[in-house]
Every structure is written in C-alpha cells, then in structure tokens.
Nucleic acid binder design. Structure first.
Length: 444
RNA sequence: GGAGGGCUCGCAUAGCGGCCGAGUGCACCGGUCUUGAAAACCGGCAGGUGAAAGCCUCGUGGGUUCAAAUCCCACGCCCUCCGCCA
C-alpha cells in the first residue's frame, strides 16, 4: 500500500503516477477525502475516550450518592464513545479500501506508456545464425523429446496441459542450474538450505550411478493418478485437494512416478525400470494433532527423493530387497544409527503387500523414528493404473515398488542431532562434504 | 480428532474488575566509587500514532461493564498426553 502521509503531502506525484500507469486518477481525491473523514473521526473518538477515562477513574474513587450520579454520567458517555468508535471503525475501513486501490508510485525513470512503449537498455550477445550453420533449429519440445529431457505428453496425461516431467538430463540440468545459482549466492547462515541441496545431490548422483533415471515430476496431478496409486482410500483425508480445478497435491512423488507409465505397455526386456523422483510433498496431517508439533519431524510440505521401480511380478520380492539396500546405503553414508523394521499388516498402505521401514536414532527423543519406507505393491497399482509389460509370454500386469531415498527434513533432524558437538556445531558426514564444500557447520 | 496447561515491557516472573501501561529479578545504557574491572550504590530502560494534549497496544478478534491484563466467547501459537505418517 502507498504511504498515506506521502499522499497527503504529494497528491500530485500520486496523480501523475496513476496517470502514467493508465489507472484511475480520481481515486486520489477520493482517498484524500476518506482519509480526512477518518482522521476527524479518530480525533473525535479519542477526545470522547479521554473524557471517559477521566470520568471512569473518578467513579472508582467516589462512593455513595456521588458515585450514583457519576455512574449515570458515565453511562451516557459510554454510549457516545461506543457510537464514535463504531463510526471511526467504519470510516477507517472505508479509507483503507480506497487506499488499497492505488498502485505503487512509479519510479520517475520508468518509461511511460503501454506494452509497446518499452525502452531497450542494451543488447548482449549475438543471436546465432542457424542458416549459415546449415540447419533449422528445433524447438525445446522436440529437443526435449530427442534428449529424453522433457516429457510434456506424459505430463499432460497425469496432470493436464501445461504440465511436464523433467527426466534424465533434463532433471540433471535442473539440479545443475540450482547448484550453480546457489553456489553464487553462498553464505553461511544458509546451511539448512545447502544441506538440502547436498542431500539431494548425493541422493541423485548415487541413484543415477545405480541406474535410476532422475525425474522431476509434477506435484499437481489429476484424480486418476491419485486413485490409481491408492491414495484416495483411507489416506484421502491426508491429501490436499484443489476443488476449483479438481487437482490433487501429491503427498509423495510415488504418485506421479507410478502414473508416468499409466495406460502403457512396457517392453519386458527393459525391466526393471527405475526412477528417482525429486519433488515437494504435501500432507494435511489430519488426525495427527498435538503429535510432533515441535520442529520439522512432521510438516505439511517437505522435499523428498523417492525411488520407484517397475518390474516383473516374479522379481518384485528381490527388487524390494534392493530398494531396502539402497536406503540402508544412504543411512550408512550419513553415519546415522538406525534399525530396519518389517511393518505389521495393520500398518501397511492399501497398495502395499509388504513394507520395510528404516528408523533413525533420534537422541533427544531417545527413540528410533521413521525416516524411510519401502513398499512392494506387486501388481496392485499396475492394474489400477493400467500399466502392463509385454514379453514372449504375452502381456501382463506389471509390479511396482517404491522406497524413500531421502526425506529431507527428517534426515536433517537425524544429521544435526546425531552429529552435533558440545558447542552446537555439527560435523558433516564425509559423504556430504564434497557436496557442501565444508566439514562442519559453524555457529552463526 | 480428543484431553489438559500456557501466551504480560529483551529474558524470567508478579498481577485483587478501578490505586495497572503494569511490580520484581536478570540483561542492557548512563553515573558515583576504582589505576582499570568486578561488586556496591544512584538513575534510566516497551512500542505505535499524533504538532501537542492525548489515544491505542498485556497472543488475535469479539463480548459483558461506567471501567478489562483481570470476567465470557471464538481463533491462533506453544507445551504435555492418547488413535494415523517420510
């Protein structure tokens, strides 16, 4: 909002600014008038209030008949104060609503005019001459497809138009851009954010080495993806739903990763197909009130690198063990004590037929807390999402499995608490040091 | 989703409906003393708005009352305990 004092003192500047923007100039006088009315009402109210304060004090001090008389006076005055206060509130609201209409005051150096009236400040670089190079440039959509970098078709399938997956070098390019940008604005108090980038980079680079295709998926998906992965059953109350558009915010990239191949028949010879998705995750946490409200153990939004496998049903059990092993490798690299549990039946998600959780030791809670989870969904999701594979035996439903490689906030909790020193500094696990460029987090 | 406790001037606390915009301790600032420091002692010490008088602010918003930090209602946040998640 603009500064009303400035407006009072420089109405012409504001008028000129409004005019330059092509916006309502008359509003300036409207605001001035309502501001005057407001200020008069405030003064009136404050004077009455001052009287009331004085009178009130004398009521407290008085007694007997004198008090009765004063009370009658006070009562009358209280009515006036109330009326004046109501008037003040009303005029204040009016003045505010008028003032909110005015746009920010233009920098006098900003060019005046419409979209066409921009001023070119400089040209940098020379547009490349493709014709002399002898070929016509392809657009980014075509290149993205050729490089396996951008997938707008599957984006549309899962999340509608204007949605996309970044896959392979596309995802790597995003990480590189982020890292380059971040490395240029490095400062020590940002170690929290840096730790996230380091964890993600470490996770993605190890997953890539293990043959996972890195993916940055959409986090906004259509109902089919949510339904197909089994999140609209019991888990529905934990899901954010955008009613106006009938989109869902995913609670895990498992959803867009599974739906990536929705309604497709995959080549059996290329299985298992493994993806490592990095995305924000959104959870309503309904029904968890009062639990873990402290800190970042349980939050509405967090980032996570999730592993996802498509494989033949007969290989699913083995694949499940592999996912678990990668999770253990990660925890080992973070040098954090943990335990692995075989989750009991009543605690399985609706899509899973078996689930292993890794729980990291959290010293201040004197407990192991869940940091990763890997589920074998066998062909359950595959059927719901209509994903099949074809080999010499014919076309069959595919098995899917998922596992957390790293859920950022909980891993940050585990690292900070387990690797802290007496003075509050924190040692960085060796595996992250190359990604962070430091061996210890210092006090700010 | 449910039960209980809390939210007051940087921190910690006190606060009977009027004598409370608010006491005390610590911290902080200035001074006395001291070669210097500590200690002790003296003084100061919340913010907004307004030219000023004044008005407003005790988590936020309503209400009761002549008068609310104090009573009532709603909400927010924090803490403790039970059924779900990375």
């Amino acid at each position: 909002m603009i500064d009303l004092k400035f407006l009072r003192e420089n109405p012409d500047v504001v008028r000129a600014s409004q005019k330059g923007r092509g916006e309502d100039v008359a509003i300036v006088d409207k605001v001035l008038a309502s501001d005057d009315a407001k200020r008069a009402a405030i003064t009136e109210f404050e004077q009455l209030r001052a009287q009331q304060n004085v009178l009130s004090k004398s009521v407290g001090a008085a007694s007997g008949e004198e008090k009765v008389a004063l009370l009658a006076n006070s009562k009358e005055l209280a009515e006036k104060v109330k009326a004046a206060d109501a008037k003040r509130a009303e005029l204040e609201a009016t003045a505010l609503s008028h003032a909110m209409v005015i746009s920010n005051i233009l920098d006098p150096e900003a060019p005046i005019g419409g979209e066409e009236d921009f001023v070119v400040i400089e040209h940098v670089g020379t547009p490349r001459d493709f014709s002399s190079a002898g070929f016509a440039p392809k657009d980014h959509v075509e290149l993205g497809k050729l490089l396996g970098a951008i997938d707008t078709e599957r984006g549309a399938k899962v999340s509608g138009s204007r949605s996309y997956y970044l896959t392979g070098v596309g995802a790597l390019l995003e990480f590189a851009l982020v890292n380059y940008a971040i490395s240029r604005s490095y400062y020590l108090t940002g170690v929290g954010a840096l730790l996230e980038f380091a964890l993600v980079n470490y996770a993605i680079s190890s997953a890539t080495k293990a043959g996972f295709i890195p993916v940055i998926p959409p986090v906004l998906v259509k109902p089919a993806a949510m339904e197909g992965t089994g999140f609209l059953g019991q888990a529905a109350e934990n899901v954010y739903h955008l009613e106006k558009d009938d989109y869902y915010l995913v609670g895990t990239s498992e959803v867009p990763l599974a739906a990536f191949h929705m309604d497709e028949v995959l080549d059996g010879a290329k299985l298992p197909l493994r993806y490592a998705g990095y995305s924000s995750c959104f959870r309503r946490e309904a029904g968890s009130y009062g639990k873990d409200t402290r800190g970042i153990i349980r939050v509405h939004q967090f980032d996570k690198v999730e592993m996802f496998s498509f494989c033949k049903p007969e290989e699913a059990k083995q694949e499940h063990q592999r996912l678990l092993q990668w999770e253990k490798d990660f925890l080992n690299a973070m040098e954090i004590p943990y335990r692995v549990i075989d989750v009991a039946s009543g605690d399985l998600g609706s899509s899973a037929n078996r689930k292993f959780d890794i729980e990291a030791w959290i010293p201040t809670q004197d407990a192991y807390r869940e940091v990763t989870s890997t589920s074998n969904c066998t062909e359950f999701q595959g059927r719901r999402l209509n994903i099949r594979y074809k080999d010499s035996d014919g076309t069959k439903a595919i098995a899917t499995l998922n596992g957390t490689l790293v859920a950022i906030p909980r891993m940050i909790v585990a690292i900070l608490e387990n690797h802290q020193n007496a003075d509050g500094t924190v040692n960085v696990p060796a595996a992250l040091q190359p990604f962070l460029g430091m061996t210890r987090f210092e006090l700010v």
